[in-house]
């Protein structure tokens, strides 16, 4: 069954490691839905969250091949029910329509917040699941959305051990 999988990868901070990881998806003709990377809770160890839509048998093999890379410490995969995940979106709308249109109630109703307000434009930020971010977009659209950007997903799995305990085993 094809479904969404969240792959979490912990790596050393070496040049080219992202390339090594993405090659594995490319070789299997697998599309990456989203990708984020940043330093983890341990200094010098980087954490990648990669979202793919595929079957479990495929994702298992891909994760095995990722973990085989010399500079990869550990890789896991989880389906959506096993993780808590969020994305962040920024919306830029003209300040005048924003001020005059009562859109503030919309922002509040969506638990979004105003990040910055300038003479010409206002930037709103919302964190949530993709559908929630989209819903806010749809409601802001009548005010004229000048720019809209959504991050990739970050995910934390419910059952996972701490990274440190894995490192200790190694």
């Amino acid at each position: 069954m094809v479904q969404v999988y969240n792959i979490s990868i912990f790596t050393e901070n070496h040049i080219g490691i992202l390339n090594r990881i993405t090659i594995i998806f490319t070789r299997r003709h697998m599309n990456i839905e989203s990708i984020t990377a940043s330093e983890s809770e341990l200094k010098g160890i980087y954490r990648y969250t990669i979202v793919v839509k595929t079957t479990e048998s495929q994702v298992k093999k891909v994760v095995g091949q990722i973990e085989r890379q010399v500079d990869v410490l550990k890789a896991f995969y989880h389906d959506d029910s096993q993780v808590v995940y969020q994305e962040i979106a920024l919306y830029k709308i003209p300040t005048d329509t924003f001020m005059n249109g009562g859109s503030e109630t919309i922002v509040r109703a969506h638990s979004a917040r105003i990040l910055s307000m300038e003479v010409g434009f206002t930037i709103i930020e919302k964190t949530g699941q993709p559908e929630e971010l989209q819903k806010l977009f749809d409601e802001l659209e009548p005010f004229g959305v000048l720019e809209f950007v959504r991050s990739g997903r970050v995910a934390i799995s419910k059952p996972m051990k701490t990274l440190e305990s894995y490192l200790a085993e190694m």
């Binding site: 070496h14 080219g16 390339n19 070789r27 010399v70 500079d71």
Partner: peptide, 14 residues
């Protein structure tokens, strides 16, 4: 060379 050889090396480094 690092980019080209990446898929065909176990490890590479510049």
């Amino acid at each position: 060379v690092i980019g080209i050889s990446m898929p065909v090396t176990k490890w590479n480094i510049q």
